[in-house]
């Protein structure tokens, strides 16, 4: 898409790439974004109508006042010429129409799993699997506890062998960094296999 760029500005704009932080409601997505971002997580509110959904479509949903979907994101400056953005995906399933847009042009995704209720992230895993979007699974051990080894979680979520499963703590920067690195390493390994 570089070809559609406009005239070069005086200050060259850095390249931008993004990674999605996905998973069920309350698994620690916003917490993770905040742990690694160099800025306090930013937030935008998108009206559901603008996002292609009529308020009428919300019939049957209890909280009709929730006519916007919030998106929070953070930033990691990699260098003068490269910035990485992390987008926390809206958790509720009814906001999934936004995921397609979000996923477009992403390096990949981290699917966070709450170790106490892993199946709430199953739908997110399914989403990335179906679309062939590279992802890793971060098992957020609330209270820093990890009662299950990664292999047990892999089995519980029927994850293929090539999807890395990492135990993590969404509140710890180093822990979140390692999950992100696992995702990029997965991309690097895959790129190495392509001639």
């Amino acid at each position: 898409m570089a070809g559609s760029d406009t005239a070069a500005p005086a200050v060259p704009a850095p390249d931008a790439v993004k990674i999605l932080i996905a998973g069920g409601f309350g698994v620690g997505k916003t917490t993770m974004v905040g742990s690694v971002s160099e800025i306090a997580p930013l937030r935008t509110e998108e009206p559901l109508t603008a996002a292609g959904l009529d308020v009428d479509d919300l019939d049957g949903i209890e909280d009709k006042k929730a006519t916007t979907v919030a998106l929070d994101f953070g930033r990691i400056t990699i260098g003068d010429d490269l910035v990485l953005y992390l987008f926390g995906t809206p958790g509720q399933q009814r906001f999934w129409f936004m995921w397609n847009d979000l996923a477009l042009g992403a390096l990949g995704a981290v699917v966070l799993v709450d170790v106490r209720r892993p199946r709430t992230s199953f739908a997110a895993i399914d989403f990335f699997e179906r679309r062939g979007i590279p992802f890793v699974v971060g098992v957020n051990g609330f209270h820093g506890e990890h009662p299950y080894p990664p292999e047990e979680i892999r089995e519980a979520l029927s994850l293929p062998a090539d999807v890395p499963v990492l135990l993590c703590d969404a509140r710890e920067r180093a822990s979140c960094r390692d999950v992100l690195i696992a995702l990029v390493d997965r991309r690097i390994a895959a790129a190495g296999r392509v001639p």
């Binding site: 760029d5 990699i78 490269l82 390096l107 690195i181 990029v184 991309r187 690097i188």
Partner: peptide, 22 residues
């Protein structure tokens, strides 16, 4: 300025740069 295309097989230098930065 549009984002760098990263689907399929992206520029390995770009991936390495992100890796090093992280």
């Amino acid at each position: 300025r549009q984002p760098r295309p990263v689907s399929g097989s992206p520029d390995p230098n770009l991936l390495q740069k992100v890796r090093d930065g992280l």
